[in-house]
């Protein structure tokens, strides 16, 4: 049994979700017999890591700092092995624009997109390019902050008139945003655990057209079907794509890859990869693991063991 520091909370907008993930992980680790040190990631993070000298850190942080490589860099410096992906994989995945470029370059289907920084609009006249983008992507266009893990700040622009408002909202979260072609269809999540794909979860919004941040963490707002009711070939293709993304981005331990199955064409598109997917009662990765016969404690145990094994490899 090991001394495990659970890093949770932090200062990101997903702090509350992270606290819920972290609390569940702590309970699970205690049931597994580990010595648990709970750390709300704040200004004393490095000091607390040095003082408590854990054998491994379970990073249960979501969003800024936790998923963008910042905390991973600190853990490397302090010399504490940690769960999940390393620094460079976090940076590549957390920035949706970087991840989408990598996927496109590698031939992995991802919805067409354009990305801009605030500087491009403020100082380089990027606004003049908007009509051309709108023409190429067709409405509705999805406008997203590049680095926000949840659905916060994601807006649908139904017409050209909606685009500036959607951009203002998205820029509330990040200096870089992307405009992405909307793929109408089924919302699929493929979780990967130690290079093994888990059963696919389909998120079916209840009476809503968009799977939003509200629904993502609430019971009753979204129905989850796991394993998703898909033709075998489609399931296999989605799982293969998820594995390719996992390897392409250099992910480790566990991750979740979100895809859309386009209704009109039955084509799959990868939206993004989440390096530290939620571990709350309603989160998708635990559901997928459960469907594969891996209970929550077993899931957490495997994630920790994997981190320790990578550290000694």
């Amino acid at each position: 049994m090991s001394r495990v520091a659970v890093l949770k909370g932090g200062r990101s907008l997903e702090r509350q979700v992270s606290l819920r993930s972290g609390a569940r992980v702590e309970d699970s680790l205690e049931r597994l017999g580990h010595d648990v040190i709970a750390i709300d990631a704040g200004a004393d993070l490095v000091e607390r890591l040095r003082m408590s000298r854990p054998e491994v850190a379970f990073v249960a942080l979501h969003g800024r700092d936790g998923e963008d490589g910042t905390v991973q860099e600190l853990l490397e410096l302090v010399g504490v092995p940690y769960t999940g992906s390393g620094v460079s994989a976090c940076i590549r995945s957390n920035d949706k624009v970087l991840a989408k470029h990598a996927m496109r370059d590698d031939g992995i289907p991802t919805p067409d997109f354009y990305s801009f920084t605030q500087t491009a609009f403020r100082e380089l006249g990027a606004a003049a390019a908007l009509p051309a983008i709108e023409e190429r992507l067709e409405f509705p266009i999805v406008v997203k902050p590049a680095g926000q893990g949840s659905a916060l700040g994601i807006k649908f622009a139904g017409t050209a008139g909606d685009v500036p408002t959607a951009l203002v909202s998205a820029f509330s979260y990040d200096d870089k945003v992307l405009l992405e072609r909307h793929v109408p269809g089924r919302d699929l999540a493929v979780s990967v655990l130690d290079g093994e794909v888990l059963p696919i979860v389909e998120a079916v919004p209840v009476g809503e057209e968009f799977y939003d941040f509200e629904a993502r963490y609430q019971i009753g707002r979204t129905e989850f079907v796991c394993p998703a009711d898909l033709p075998e070939a489609v399931s296999a293709a989605a799982q293969e794509l998820a594995l390719r993304v996992f390897e392409l981005l250099g992910l480790a331990g566990f991750a979740r890859v979100d895809l859309m199955l386009e209704r009109a064409t039955d084509r799959l598109f990868v939206l993004e990869a989440d390096t530290i997917p939620g571990l709350t009662e309603t989160s998708l990765l635990p559901q997928a693991a459960d469907a594969a016969g891996i209970g929550f404690d077993a899931l957490i145990g495997r994630i920790v063991d994997g981190a320790l094994a990578r550290a000694t490899a």
């Binding site: 459960d290 929550f296 077993a298």
Partner: peptide, 18 residues
């Protein structure tokens, strides 16, 4: 036991009671 205290299935069970 091996079974975790709260899985999504458990939660679904409660969800039906709310």
């Amino acid at each position: 036991g091996d079974r975790p205290r709260s899985t999504s299935r458990d939660l679904e069970r409660y969800a039906g009671l709310f």
